[in-house]
Simulated assay, not measured.
Amino acid sequence: MTELAEALPEVQSKGEQHVAYSVRGKNFAYFLDDHHGDGKIAIACKAAPGAQAELIEREGERFYAPAYLGSRGWVALDLEAGKVDWTEVRTMLADAYRLLAPKKLSAQLAGQ
């Protein structure tokens, strides 16, 4: 996941058990390992309005509202709930990035 996130323009990461990915000081995604004792290994991404509810309703066995972040619309993907589709992860990261990155940086993501 780190490789996918850090491939986006100007992304920085910090942390070990929980890794935050940010662009210009704004976090857009996290790698979570047993976040607040939930026992899951997951990625959490900032989501567009309504996306969290839609994903959870459609695929609640894979997607969930993460503690503390879920109330702000973030959505998490349980990486142990079946085979991981890394193209889907790349898309989630790119979508979250676009929500917070400056337009000039977001424009560099053509095709992602």
Rank of each mutant, 00 (worst) to 15 (best):
1 M>C: 13
1 M>D: 09
2 T>F: 03
3 E>V: 06
3 E>G: 10
3 E>K: 14
3 E>Q: 14
4 L>M: 10
4 L>Y: 09
7 A>V: 07
8 L>T: 08
8 L>R: 04
9 P>D: 05
10 E>N: 15
10 E>L: 13
13 S>D: 10
13 S>Q: 14
15 G>T: 02
15 G>E: 02
17 Q>P: 01
17 Q>L: 03
19 V>W: 05
21 Y>P: 03
23 V>S: 10
23 V>G: 07
24 R>Q: 15
25 G>F: 11
25 G>W: 12
26 K>H: 12
26 K>I: 13
27 N>R: 13
28 F>S: 05
29 A>F: 05
31 F>M: 09
32 L>T: 08
32 L>R: 03
32 L>K: 06
32 L>W: 03
32 L>Y: 02
33 D>G: 03
35 H>Q: 03
37 G>W: 07
37 G>K: 13
38 D>F: 06
38 D>Q: 10
39 G>M: 11
39 G>A: 02
39 G>V: 09
40 K>A: 10
41 I>A: 00
42 A>Q: 11
43 I>Q: 00
43 I>M: 09
44 A>M: 07
45 C>H: 01
46 K>I: 07
46 K>Y: 08
46 K>R: 15
46 K>L: 14
47 A>F: 01
47 A>V: 13
47 A>W: 00
47 A>Q: 10
48 A>F: 01
48 A>S: 14
49 P>Y: 05
50 G>C: 12
52 Q>C: 11
52 Q>F: 09
53 A>T: 08
54 E>K: 08
54 E>P: 01
55 L>H: 02
56 I>N: 02
57 E>H: 11
63 F>G: 11
63 F>N: 09
63 F>M: 12
64 Y>Q: 12
64 Y>W: 10
65 A>W: 04
66 P>S: 05
67 A>R: 12
68 Y>D: 05
70 G>V: 07
70 G>E: 10
75 V>N: 11
76 A>D: 04
77 L>Q: 06
78 D>A: 10
79 L>D: 00
80 E>V: 00
80 E>G: 13
82 G>E: 04
85 D>Q: 04
86 W>Q: 01
87 T>P: 02
88 E>C: 02
89 V>D: 03
90 R>K: 15
91 T>M: 06
92 M>P: 00
94 A>M: 03
94 A>T: 15
94 A>C: 08
94 A>L: 04
95 D>A: 15
95 D>Y: 04
100 L>R: 13
104 K>A: 13
105 L>W: 12
106 S>F: 07
106 S>G: 15
107 A>R: 15
108 Q>A: 14
108 Q>H: 02
109 L>T: 12
109 L>S: 09
109 L>H: 13
109 L>G: 09
110 A>K: 14
111 G>K: 11
111 G>I: 06
112 Q>S: 09
